[in-house]
Nucleic acid binder design. Sequence first.
DNA 1: GCACCATCTTGTCGCTGTCAAGATCAAGTT
DNA 2: AACTTGATCTTGACAGCGACAAGATGGTGC
Lengths: 207, 207
Amino acid sequence: MPTKQSAKPPPKPATERYHHGDLRNALIEEAGRVLESDGVEAVTFRGLARRLGVSHAAPSHHFADRHELLAELAADGYAALADALEDAMSGTPPAEWRRNGGRAYLEFGLTSPQRYRMMFASQLFLDECPERLLGESSRAYLMLLKLSYGRDPDIDPESYRVGTRELASWSAVHGAMMLWLDGQLRESVDQAEFMRLSSEMLDELFA
Amino acid sequence: MPTKQSAKPPPKPATERYHHGDLRNALIEEAGRVLESDGVEAVTFRGLARRLGVSHAAPSHHFADRHELLAELAADGYAALADALEDAMSGTPPAEWRRNGGRAYLEFGLTSPQRYRMMFASQLFLDECPERLLGESSRAYLMLLKLSYGRDPDIDPESYRVGTRELASWSAVHGAMMLWLDGQLRESVDQAEFMRLSSEMLDELFA
DNA sequence: GCACCATCTTGTCGCTGTCAAGATCAAGTT
DNA sequence: AACTTGATCTTGACAGCGACAAGATGGTGC
């Protein structure tokens, strides 16, 4: 059926079409690039619109406000973090989960520093935190628990309370990550040394 | 000398005078209040100018830009933190420094959450970090070292390198603080329980 | 062939930081 | 006493931002 070629609109350059066609996803992808290269403050509706060749108000039709876009980016971040932890642990014996998972966690933060910082800046999307963000973040947290316990935690989400052990492991790795990303350690240590120090810290913590 | 009363200008209400007289300090104080009540994004030159009854451009004459004002607030925060640690440790035997100092650290963060978050958001004042900020923050760090060592650390600032022990204690307390302030723990624990958990964590960490 | 509706554009508003030019005023100089 | 200087503050303007409203566009279903 050679005549079917007009069923899907011929791929004109997106800049010429009145309707972009996939603006929502394009916004998310472009926002991810801007976030990592210039920081969260540089992620603006108007800036993204310019980059994508659409009008300044186009983004508003896909996100209620700027925070809703940022929340989407954060949710993607949590999903990526959970996946990274899962990958690092799958196929290895539980005894190595903490080591491998901890390393994967650190690597995620070092690879996507701006994303990591934004994921935890919950003030950015406090009012009406979207469902997907909650879901992906708790998935990541469950991977963290699995990692620190060395087994699947069977947890009742209603009655669950954080214990000192979970708090210690999570605080240590998150704290180290934040101190590094916020530049508090850069005077006295470089990235490779930070990675070594942090791994050592986690080993001692879990010994 | 009773006639000396006109040496200092009679204290007209500041709103009526052309020159405020102490605008720089007034800006810093008002900014501190706005910061803690409405968050760092609410700290704006124009908003502060309105609150203080001066023109919208007046703040620019005392701070090169908004980041310079925020840096001042952060420096004050580090100074207050260092003082709080010092107070908590002074007059008590070194064996109790970690417990008392750790508690003081946590209390500082819980009392001034927005201030604490901003102090570590170094991206806000990355370009040309003012001298005082560096000074006060390293004073706070030295108190932290003294606290964790149980003695005055004699350190050569040039050759100093962070060790796993310092990284562990600092990461744990900072990480717990950030997780709490960013709301990651609020679902499963309240503030009193957080305080108890964190203290317990620090005890175990230093045991 | 028509109507609907999601999508996108244009225009506007008030907010922000920042700069430039002028007004005010205290303190020091001649 | 008159003048000058410099710090402080005001007024006015500009560009960038988020957000809203009203209209243009064009594909989909009736």
